[in-house]
């Protein structure tokens, strides 16, 4: 059977204690929340911290709060809680939908918002056991030299596969981080890096404490997920679309693609294509094409890459049509 390697397990009760422990244990330490990403990775030996610091008992990280009209979701909130929370469902349905689409109800009872936002990037040359990876002589992301997805490329193309990440970027949420140096707040769009290895701008010692959602005032957003099966599966494409309405006209828009790049990929051209329109079919078509062009899935997830690219067009159009249908003025 597949077992965990040996490691030290620490259970701090406060953020302060956690940061201290992290400082004491150095770079071989990692945080864990629900463990649904980290433990499988450790079992397959592609993440190998020798110290694991559990954030599960830190009170400050739990709960959904309302601060100045912003809804703030603690990093430890489970995905089930996020998906079922009344206020989130009402004002941020895209967040609730994305959270509720993750894996299975069982996993959502364990997996946390923070873990999801910090989810390791994925690649099916990487999410494999040690023995398997040995047979391809490993790869750049872990223990090897070459990226098998694009052997001539100097970088890793592992995929950001979080369902929530593209939504946070699209709606303009913010991440609150703490470290020994204090607190800082980063817009979601700046939280992610276009790199399969250094996929977060967050320093490894920083703790994500909460996700701050913008005030729900005059904008609408949605999230569509494409995956092979109705449960268990990571997205092979996620489309998060955000629109600020001015009556029946699009005043501002953002479209962000998930699971086609190492980061949630904004497609400003697609948003620009609908600004000033009432989301007629033509405008939607133009936006869908604009999103389709830069969408470059690689051969490292389920499904064929050209089909996934084609689906960008379909899913962006469907997301925009959904938003159009939501607007009672149209």
């Amino acid at each position: 059977m597949l077992r965990l390697p040996r490691f030290d397990y620490l259970e701090p009760k406060s953020l302060k204690q956690a940061l201290k422990m992290r400082e004491a244990s150095g770079d071989n330490a990692m945080y864990v929340a629900g463990g649904t990403d980290l433990y499988p990775n450790m079992k397959r030996r592609h993440q190998d911290p020798t110290t694991v610091i559990s954030l599960a008992n830190i009170r400050a990280l739990t709960g959904v709060r309302n601060r100045d009209g912003h809804t703030c979701i603690g990093a430890n909130t489970t995905l089930t809680q996020v998906a079922k929370h009344r206020r989130i469902k009402r004002h941020y349905p895209a967040i609730a939908t994305a959270a509720g689409s993750i894996s299975t109800p069982l996993l959502r009872n364990m997996g946390t918002l923070g873990g999801n936002l910090c989810l390791d990037t994925r690649c099916n040359y990487y999410n494999q056991t040690l023995e398997w990876r040995k047979s391809i002589d490993y790869c750049m992301k872990k223990d090897g030299a070459i990226c098998w997805v694009a052997p001539s490329s100097p970088r890793c193309w592992a995929v950001n596969s979080s369902d929530l990440a593209p939504v946070t970027v699209a709606i303009g949420a913010e991440m609150a981080l703490v470290s020994a140096d204090g607190e800082r707040v980063v817009p979601a769009g700046k939280f992610y890096n276009d790199d399969g290895i250094e996929y977060l701008t967050k320093r490894p010692d920083e703790i994500l404490t909460e996700l701050r959602l913008p005030q729900p005032n005059g904008w609408d957003a949605t999230y569509l997920k494409l995956a092979r099966r109705g449960s268990f599966d990571f997205p092979v494409l996620g489309v998060a679309a955000w629109i600020r309405w001015d009556g029946d006209t699009v005043a501002d828009a953002r479209i962000v693609l998930g699971a086609v790049a190492s980061y949630p990929m904004p497609v400003p051209e697609a948003g620009a294509a609908i600004i000033g329109t009432s989301l007629g079919d033509d405008a939607i078509e133009t936006a869908a094409t604009a999103a389709f062009k830069p969408s470059k899935p690689m051969d490292n997830t389920d499904h064929g890459l050209s089909w996934r690219k084609q689906m960008t067009r379909v899913y962006v159009a469907r997301a925009l049509k959904e938003l159009r249908a939501n607007n009672k003025l149209i």
Binding site: N124, Q128, W132, R228, R229, S231, D302
Partner: peptide
């Protein structure tokens, strides 16, 4: 190599 010797990537229909 087997592309994905795992229960996640070898697709068995779920209840859905």
């Amino acid at each position: 190599v087997h592309k994905f010797p795992s229960m996640l990537e070898y697709k068995s229909p779920t209840t859905h």
